[in-house]
């Protein structure tokens, strides 16, 4: 039995949930960022798999999903750069990257 679209989709969904759990449950800001990166990579796998198995009439010859994945990778790099800069900025002020302790403002 070879690999089918479903295998890739399940992998994508599982990775997405792992990433979401990491982003919500981790207390270290860098680990939260890593969780978000896993979520984005889950999306990339899903996109590329959908693109490869695309059977819808005029679009099946296009590489839209792969192009989308490349754009996501690029933008994620930019986002990670900004996020890491912010984390360094707060580390200099507070000497911590624990999101539980970054809580001056609360309602």
């Amino acid at each position: 039995m070879g690999l089918s679209l479903n295998h890739y989709l399940v992998l994508g969904a599982v990775l997405f949930c792992i990433g979401l759990y990491g982003a919500l449950a981790k207390r270290n800001a860098v680990a939260v960022l890593m969780g978000i990166e896993i979520m984005l990579n889950a999306v990339n796998i899903t996109m590329v798999a959908f693109s490869f198995y695309n059977k819808v009439a005029p679009y099946s010859t296009y590489l839209t999903g792969q192009i989308f994945a490349i754009f996501i990778i690029t933008v994620a790099a930019a986002e990670a750069a900004v996020a890491l800069a912010m984390i360094i900025a707060i580390y200099r002020r507070r000497s911590t990257v624990d999101v539980g302790e970054i809580d001056i403002m609360k309602w």
Binding site: G19, A89, R94, D103
Partner: peptide
């Protein structure tokens, strides 16, 4: 600084969703 960290982390998560 705190606002920026919260904004960037939550913003990135919402774009992933």
């Amino acid at each position: 600084a705190e606002a920026a960290v919260k904004y960037v982390l939550l913003g990135a998560m919402s774009s992933a969703i």
